[in-house]
């Protein structure tokens, strides 16, 4: 393939992925308001467009035109940089996530992924671990005790749960023998006994549980949303932010949710594997559809949990992470390693 085709294809792919991701972020917010509303016997957004479908657009316009306040006594360079750090790193990690098999256009094969690197999983872990600084620095630079407490909680919580998150993934890595997300998905093709799909969730249910818990904590979502616990900290690390800067933290949170859901789909739920049928054009599009459906299901679970569970206390959060989740993930890792070696 000539280099210019490669560059043009990469630019087009990046634009499409970014557009889809930002739309998905906006509509995850809409979905959350709608679903939680119905769970609480309310309607959620209904006024703007049919079923309130234009609500994200209205929110976006509102965020853009609100007054952008910078309170006095903040540490300005970091106060301005923190939301950028949060949102940039949240959006970056989508670059290595594959959405489906390669498609062939004009005689060239294009993988449905911005870039395929052989350490894709580590890239995601690295990028998300840098994203913590957005929240931590926002809390510190705001010069507000609630913000500071929120930032401290966020960094402590993310460092604690990152260990369990990483260990829960190692079991999957042992089974698939690769860091490449594409190869991890390829291993999950086919079925057990002819009818159970060969997804890692059936081989690694404990790892999936650990991943699920750690992922909720990493994305600061209920029941682990201590960094922005409204009842204690006003709004936590983003108390002093308004307008688009606040919206950036919001976008970062939902983009992180989508990354976590995509990663769960790729590692545990078989990626884009699913029933393929129909004419060639449908066969080409179905894998992407299955991938999207699984990510949607995972996001729905997020919202469902938010509508169901109350918030943990901070000591419960730390005790759960260090005294329960970490030993469980370690035990799962040891058992998996022994089984693989014996087999």
């Amino acid at each position: 393939m000539p280099i210019w085709i490669y560059i043009v294809a990469t630019v087009i792919k990046s634009a499409i992925v970014l557009l889809v991701l930002l739309t998905a972020v906006a509509y995850t917010v809409w979905l959350e308001r709608k679903v939680v509303g119905h769970m609480q016997n309310r309607w959620g957004p209904t006024r703007v467009g049919p079923f309130g479908l234009l609500q994200p657009a209205a929110d976006g316009i509102k965020f853009l035109f609100k007054e952008d306040l910078t309170p006095p006594h903040v540490y300005k360079p970091l106060f301005l940089a923190a939301p950028l750090i949060a949102v940039i790193f949240a959006l970056t990690s989508i670059a290595v996530i594959p959405f489906g098999n390669a498609i062939t256009l004009f005689g060239y094969s294009f993988p449905l992924q911005i870039t395929d690197v052989n350490i894709g999983l580590l890239v995601i872990l690295g990028v998300t671990s840098i994203g913590v600084y957005g929240v931590a620095l926002a809390g510190w630079s705001s010069n507000n005790k609630y913000s500071l407490l929120g930032g401290l909680r966020a960094s402590a919580q993310m460092v604690s749960y990152e260990i369990s998150l990483g260990l829960s993934l190692v079991g999957v890595l042992i089974l698939s023998g690769s860091f490449s997300l594409r190869e991890i998905v390829d291993v999950q093709g086919g079925t057990f006994l002819g009818f159970i799909p060969r997804w890692n969730i059936f081989l690694q249910p404990v790892a999936f549980f650990c991943y699920l818990m750690a992922a909720y904590a990493e994305t600061n979502r209920i029941p682990f949303d201590l960094p922005e616990a409204e009842t204690e900290l006003v709004a936590g690390y983003h108390t002093e932010y308004s307008a688009m800067k606040f919206a950036m933290f919001f976008m970062a949170e939902y983009a992180n949710m989508i990354t976590v859901a995509s990663l769960a789909t790729l590692l545990f739920l078989g990626g884009w594997h699913g029933p393929i049928f129909g004419p060639p054009i449908l066969q080409a599009l179905l894998p992407v559809f299955w991938f999207g459906a699984k990510v949607f299901a995972f996001l729905f679970l997020y919202i469902w949990v938010r509508g169901t569970l109350p918030r943990f206390r901070y000591d419960q959060l730390m005790a759960f992470g260090w005294k329960f989740l970490l030993p469980l993930a370690l035990a799962n890792l040891i058992v998996t390693a022994i089984v693989v070696v014996v087999k």
Partner: peptide, 23 residues
Amino acid sequence: FVAALQVIVYAGAIMVLFVFVIM
């Protein structure tokens, strides 16, 4: 691999603790 670990361990974990302590 070393590059990824450098980011995850040093920039991502150890330095977070540094910043945490300073805060």
